[in-house]
Design a protein around this nucleic acid. Sequence first.
DNA 1: GTGAAAGCGCTAACAG
DNA 2: CTGTTAGCGCTTTCAC
Lengths: 331, 331
Amino acid sequence: MKANLEDIALAAGVSKMTVSRVLRGGTGFSAETRDRVMTIAQRMGYVPNRLAAAFGSDQASTLVGMCVPRLTSGLFGHVLDGVDRALSRLGYQLMIGANNHSAEEEEAWIRQVIAWRPAGFILSGRIHTPGTVDLLREATGPVVEIWDLTTSPIDLSVGFSHVDCGAEMAQFLLRRGRRRAGYVGALARADVMGAARLEGFQSTLARAGHPLVASEVLHDMPGFYAGYYGLETLLSRQPRLDVVYFHNDEMAIGGLAYAQSRGIRVPEDLGIAGWGGMEAASILPRRLTTTIVPTTAIGKAAAEALVARLKGEGGPEVTVIPTRLEPGETG
Amino acid sequence: MKANLEDIALAAGVSKMTVSRVLRGGTGFSAETRDRVMTIAQRMGYVPNRLAAAFGSDQASTLVGMCVPRLTSGLFGHVLDGVDRALSRLGYQLMIGANNHSAEEEEAWIRQVIAWRPAGFILSGRIHTPGTVDLLREATGPVVEIWDLTTSPIDLSVGFSHVDCGAEMAQFLLRRGRRRAGYVGALARADVMGAARLEGFQSTLARAGHPLVASEVLHDMPGFYAGYYGLETLLSRQPRLDVVYFHNDEMAIGGLAYAQSRGIRVPEDLGIAGWGGMEAASILPRRLTTTIVPTTAIGKAAAEALVARLKGEGGPEVTVIPTRLEPGETG
DNA sequence: GTGAAAGCGCTAACAG
DNA sequence: CTGTTAGCGCTTTCAC
């Protein structure tokens, strides 16, 4: 990496400052100067040094740090996609990390990334260590917490309520006449949001007088396998259920496969409901009863809220992106 | 962000240099000095400025840029995960971007990211613009091309051969007695790797005297829908097929759903084969015939090759991570 | 075991 | 419209 502003300045017979102004597309130079500088920069294969720029000016960072629970989650893949599209269009660069549902790993990651003086952060979830909060409070840039709405966000927040998702599904299943509900989840304590959905589900059932009959929460990745074996375990312990709510759609589809393998008819013998809205769920022989989460929209809104704040445009502190219950044919 | 090396130096009664040495865990200071400096740094909530460090030294960058075709791909999610785990363990930070299967978008992304002077790059695919190659040749750091093995990598390469995947599947299906094969793909020209698999598939069939009967390549995202409707279209044009090879497992599962909805028996009436090895595929009523790609291993190997090169440890230029044909029960 | 000086490439602030 | 000066926080180099 050779050419710098000075090299171009020398070749163009102007000062570094003029080159800097031209290259950043500002004002204060003649059209002729601009063309000359641009041509020379091009010819020299000039690559700006953002390190120097950001270091020297502190306004100039276009780095955004984003931390998700897992990089292998289909839902967060879409959130990332929404963030990435919005940010790259606006000229920002994304640094990512995964925290494996651990607030401590999140703090460790932030500690690394904050040293690069990013313009802002997008975090998922509302659970953070005190160390994280300190770090972020001293940092100058905006922080957007996505996915789960927080009553008191660190700064900005974009998402929806997981408790409400669970409650809404419980109401729906009750309306469909279900009375003996079970739950199959995964990741246990680590996934706070799954727990929030279960909480909303459970308390709504209880208030309606038909409390949750049984639940099985595996210490495993919340995927197809866990859904399959989770349902098997749950039914072996408590065969008399008329519906099962799953941690997510992957697990629900695993449960569906288990039911099919055992000749359990869905939804006649057993209702099955998921959460998330993965694409596969809508093309099953019977469309899955689930909650559709507008993942890409959340990512986009988060990125835009961050940039708006950066530009001092001030929008709402909390942005609600509503989920939608998809009745489907399995519930 | 207030405290810097000088503040700590003042408070500790030593020079900036000594503080710098202590904080980086080097040598050349007494245990007593170390403890005093560490305590003060902690108390002041010192956050190092990597911008300044990397700018001043050019050895100090621990940024790694990684570009994938799509952030929403299940397979690349696992690759990212492998990369992220390996890199974060080794103290590097990841900058990511998506190129939507476009070499031009990749170049635009690299042009942004290279300005931050990353230690190296991980790119997916072997197709790059001349501009990209120029940019990367002048950059000092290592470049790892993953996913598809290149005959002449820019620098390092980790992956497998997509042509071989297609060829191997063709041989397998021929051995199972299939004679009239079709293909359903998506994304057309944009996804060069899918095209490579088709090429291997097609040429192997032709050499065996049972050439590909029909193919349908949609201009759409390669997901369940496309598989469902792609198979519908293909069969409407050419009903007399005995097996269909799909672009990937998502599409194959979509195809399976279509077959089921039409009462087509799989594998008796029609064989179905996918590619990729998504988790869902192994829990279907019948295990999907597919090629399992060790995605996480590829990510891990790529990250490790990059870091080994960075540390001057010199390993192989090309690392083959073999795929595995899963016979399954649908082919 | 420790310190002083120089400089990385850029931009802000001011001068002309 | 253009140039000069100073300085961002760190590391490298050399001196003690």
